[in-house]
C-alpha cells in the first residue's frame, strides 16, 4: 500500500549559490504528486537556498552537513543521500537529469536496492496509488510507461523543462531540518580536481527564445558563421546536431538532443538537419520549428510548422537579408 503521507524528497542543487531551476521544477512535480515535499541540500552555506526552496513550494528542507561534503564530490553525495534515505524513508526521490543527478540516481538506487526510472517526462499515480513514470526510449522513437513496486523509495530521474516551476511565494512557511551524515573521507575515490568551462558568448542556448541550429547538411564549419549572424539578428543562440559536432565543425557544448542540451525556444530554426529522433529529443519542447532542408522527405518536416525544401546555400542568404530588413522596421 502506498502511504500518501510519506515524503517526496527532491535532491536539491544550487546554481551560482541560488536554488537551481531544475530543483524548482522538481519541487513543482513533487507538489503535483501530492503529499509533503522535502528538498535535500548537501554542502555548506545552504540557508538561503533552503528558504528559496520553501518559497518555491517545498514543505521542508534537509541541510546535509559534513566536512567530507565540502567539495561536493559525487562519491560523498551518494553516501550522504543514502544515509538520509535510510533515516527518513521517503516514498519517492526525485532527481534532476543533470551531470550530477544522472550519476547519483542509479548509484543511490543500487545501494538502496530499489528501482529507478531514467529521463522521465511524466509522473503520476494511478487510482490505486501506484507510481507510473513515462519516458522516451529508443532515442524518442517510443514511449514506455513503467510501474514502480512498493519498495521504498521509488527513484525518478526527471528530464529538464518538463514541469514549470511554481511562482515563488516568500510568505510560505516550512521546516528546516539539519542532518549530519557520518561520512568517511576515504569514501571519496574519484575526485574532480578542475572544471574547464566553454561557454558561448551571448544568450545561453538553454534560455534562448530563438535558436538557429545547423547540421551535417552545412558541409563544413564556415556556414556556422551565417547561423551566428542570423541568431544575432534575432537575439537568439546557435545550436547544432551531433553530426556537426562530431565532425568538429563546432564545439560539443552547442549540441542539441538526447545526449546534448534540452531547449524550449519559441522559434527553432534548423538548417541541414534531418530531424533524427535523438535530435528531436532535445527540442520537442520548441513551440515553432522552422526547417530548411533539401530533402522533402526529411523527418524534420514531420515536426516543423514551416518548411522550405531547398539548398540552404540558396535559401539562407535571402532569408537572412529579409530578416535583417524586418527586424529593423
Amino acid at each position: 500500500m502506498t502511504d500518501m503521507n510519506a515524503e517526496t524528497v527532491v535532491l536539491g542543487d544550487l546554481a551560482d549559490g541560488r536554488l537551481s531551476g531544475a530543483t524548482a521544477e522538481l519541487i513543482a512535480l513533487g507538489r503535483k504528486l501530492g503529499g509533503p515535499v522535502a528538498v535535500a541540500f548537501a554542502g555548506v552555506g545552504l540557508e538561503s537556498a533552503a528558504s528559496e526552496a520553501l518559497a518555491a513550494g517545498a514543505d521542508k528542507a534537509y541541510l546535509l552537513n559534513s566536512p567530507v561534503l565540502a567539495e561536493l564530490q559525487t562519491d560523498a553525495l551518494v553516501a550522504a543521500f543514502e544515509q538520509l534515505c535510510k533515516h527518513s524513508s521517503p516514498a519517492v526521490v526525485l532527481v534532476a537529469k543533470t551531470p550530477m543527478g544522472r550519476d547519483v540516481g542509479p548509484r543511490l538506487a543500487t545501494r538502496l536496492g530499489v528501482g529507478l526510472a531514467q529521463d522521465c517526462v511524466d509522473l503520476r499515480r494511478d487510482s490505486s496509488g501506484t507510481l507510473i513514470a513515462t519516458r522516451p526510449v529508443y532515442g524518442g522513437n517510443a514511449l514506455a510507461a513503467l510501474a514502480f513496486s512498493d519498495a521504498r523509495p521509488s527513484i525518478v530521474v526527471v528530464r529538464g523543462k518538463v514541469y514549470p516551476p511554481l511562482a515563488p511565494d516568500p510568505a510560505r512557511k516550512g521546516e528546516i531540518v539539519r542532518f549530519e551524515p557520518k561520512l568517511d573521507p576515504s569514501a571519496v575515490k574519484a575526485r574532480t580536481v578542475q572544471f574547464v568551462r566553454r561557454e558561448a558568448a551571448g544568450v545561453r542556448l538553454e534560455d534562448a527564445a530563438v535558436v538557429v541550429s545547423g547540421g551535417r547538411g552545412l558541409g563544413g564549419p564556415e556556414p556556422f558563421g551565417m547561423l551566428k549572424e542570423l541568431a544575432g539578428l534575432l537575439d537568439g543562440a546557435v545550436g547544432a546536431s551531433r553530426a556537426a559536432c562530431d565532425a568538429g565543425w563546432i564545439d560539443h557544448s552547442y549540441q542539441v538532443g538526447l545526449t546534448g542540451k534540452t531547449i524550449t525556444p519559441n522559434v527553432y530554426i534548423t538548417v541541414g538537419i534531418s530531424g533524427a529522433s535523438q535530435h528531436m529529443a532535445g527540442c520537442s519542447g520548441a513551440k515553432n520549428i522552422v526547417a530548411i532542408n533539401k530533402d522533402a522527405n526529411a523527418n524534420i518536416f514531420k515536426e516543423a510548422r514551416y518548411g522550405v525544401v531547398g539548398d540552404w546555400k540558396k535559401v539562407l542568404p535571402s532569408f537572412i537579408e529579409a530578416v535583417r530588413e524586418l527586424v529593423k522596421s
Binding site: 517510443a142 510507461a145 513496486s149 516543423a304
Partner: peptide, 21 residues
C-alpha cells in the same frame, strides 16, 4: 526487473508543416 513495463508505444506525431515555396 524492478519496474513493470505497462506500455510501450510510438508517440503520435500530428504536426502539419506548411511548406513555403
Amino acid at each position: 526487473p524492478k519496474l513493470r513495463v505497462l506500455d510501450l508505444f510510438a508517440p503520435p506525431r500530428e504536426k502539419q508543416c506548411e511548406f513555403v515555396a
